[in-house]
Every structure is written in C-alpha cells, then in structure tokens.
Simulated scan of single mutants.
Amino acid sequence: MTAKVSYLISKPVVTINKGTHSIDAAKKMAEHNIGSLIIMDNEKLIGIITERDIIRALGKGISLDLPVEEIGTTKNLITINENDSIYKAAELMAKNNIRHLIVTNNDGKLVGIISIRDLIRESHVLKALSVTSEQEWIGSD
C-alpha cells in the first residue's frame, strides 16, 4: 500500500484573504513560521503566495502594498488530491520546480498544504526515489 498525501499534512492550513496587502502576508508567514499562505476569496481557493514570491517581488522593486493575488500565483494552480501517493507529490514538485503543493479533496475543496520539507521527512518517498534513481542509472548504460 502506498502512503497517501493526506499522511503528510502535519499542520492546519493557514489562509489569507484576497485583497490583503502582501506585506501582511509576509508578516503572517513569519508569525506562523511557514513559507506559504493559501489565498482565499470568501470560501473559495484562488491561489497561493510563498516566501519566494515575496523575495522575487522585493528583488524586482515591486511594492508589497500590492494585494496578495498580484504577487502570488492565482493561475494554473498545481494541486494534488489528498488520496494521491506521496511519490506523485514529489514528482509534481520536482517537475514544476515548486516547494509547496496545495492538497484538495475529491470535490476540489482545500484540505491542506504540503511542503518539500514534509516530503524530505517521509522515508517512503526517499526509498522510492532511490529505487527510481537506481533503475534510471542502470538503464542509462
């Protein structure tokens, strides 16, 4: 039996409302010692803002007075179902060069979020990745 993504959700998801200043998102991330917030419009999931988004904005001279939906990601959101394998989560993160993955249920409702750190702690993923790496290495002869 493969471990499910829901197994990796270790903390309650922290959200922020659409229209909130990005500087307030940065403060909230610092307060909760987390690297991302889910952007909500009422009860609807509309995006994610991460520490990387904040750093990129600062590096480009973009004001953090802009709303979170203008700094974060609201289009082409990458999500994973809570019942998918943790291996699939690792693949999605690697393929899309992301560190946070939004977890939803079968109805598309927000369940939580997992980070690359959550995956690193999961021994099942490390074992699966090592087997895959060995197979790719052997197949490259």
Rank of each mutant, 00 (worst) to 15 (best):
K95L: 15
Q135I: 12
I39Y: 03
N42Q: 11
R52N: 07
L64P: 11
G47M: 00
Y87A: 09
V111I: 14
N33C: 03
Y87N: 13
G72F: 00
K44E: 15
I113Q: 03
I114W: 12
E70L: 11
D84S: 13
S36Q: 04
H100R: 06
I39E: 02
E122I: 04
H100W: 07
V13A: 05
K18L: 11
L101E: 07
I55E: 05
Y87V: 10
H100S: 09
I114R: 01
D24R: 12
G61L: 08
N96Y: 05
H21M: 12
L8Y: 06
L58V: 14
S22L: 01
Q135L: 15
I138P: 00
L45T: 00
R56Y: 14
L119W: 04
L66S: 13
E69M: 09
L58A: 11
E91F: 08
H124T: 14
L64A: 11
L66C: 11
V5T: 14
N105A: 00
D41M: 06
I62D: 05
L92E: 04
M1K: 13
I78W: 02
L45P: 03
L8M: 12
T104L: 13
H124R: 08
A3V: 12
I38P: 01
N106M: 07
I71Y: 11
N105W: 04
L77A: 08
K127D: 10
R121A: 09
R52L: 03
R56A: 09
I9C: 10
T50Y: 01
S140D: 02
M29H: 07
E134H: 02
I55N: 01
G139N: 15
I98E: 03
I49Y: 05
N76W: 01
